[in-house]
Amino acid sequence: MKILVCVKQVPDMESKFKIDSSSKWYDQSDLVYKINEYDEYAAEEAVRLKEKVSGSELTVLSIGPERVKDAIRKVLAMGADKGIHILDNEEHLKDPFQKASAIAEYAKSENFDIIFTGLQSQDRGSAQLAPLLAGMLNYSFVSTVVAFENKEGYVEVARELEGGLRAKVKVKLPAVVACQLGLNTPRYPTLPNIMKAKRKELKTVNIEELLKVEPLIETEKVYFPERKAGGIVLEGKADEMADELIKILKEKTQVVK
């Protein structure tokens, strides 16, 4: 089987975000980056599938600046065979359509049987890349996948629906599978595997070689929503709080005169 997993590198979501000077994205300096959580599940499932089906080859792909190689290396250490780095220092300014078409451009000649992605990225959160990619390659598409099993010539997945429901779905190959949280427990790359990954192939392609389309949507600006003024919490004994409340109502409103 030829398997591809697409991963995105995103900042640690506990970081303190600032808007950058262009107001189109967050300031990327001094952030700690890691693999998008949804993509970790995709990577783990891809590695498991590769380990199960002998003779399989697993490629890991990521788009972004030099630093995203760290994300690729981690998936190589988890068990992928080779890496493709699509070098793009302005990945954050591309829309999902452009990114999907760049990946499709790369993937169309590779004839992957199955492509794993995360359901969405933790920073942009558009959840568009996977369905667009499936459409462009004319692959089956299934999303919110929480269980995965490889069968003869097709795959069977469980999808998470609203209201606590799940759906069991048969998916024809080739397919794009977008993974939901909880699909599996991603492994920690072991130290020996981290060292082995160093010797695996990691090819870099410039985004210009793969990108042939204009964006369809444009982010005008990113901003923090205005904070609503905080309320006042009174504490103390009931009668004192009542006095305090009347005082505030008298001073700051027209309710009590």
Binding site: K34, K69, D70, R73, K74, A77, Y188, P189, T190, L191, I194, M195, A197, K198
Partner: peptide, 14 residues
């Protein structure tokens, strides 16, 4: 190195 940082990540997560 990138490998040393990855080892730190593996250890930290564990």
């Amino acid at each position: 190195s990138s490998e040393q940082k990855q080892m730190m990540e593996t250890t930290e997560q564990f």
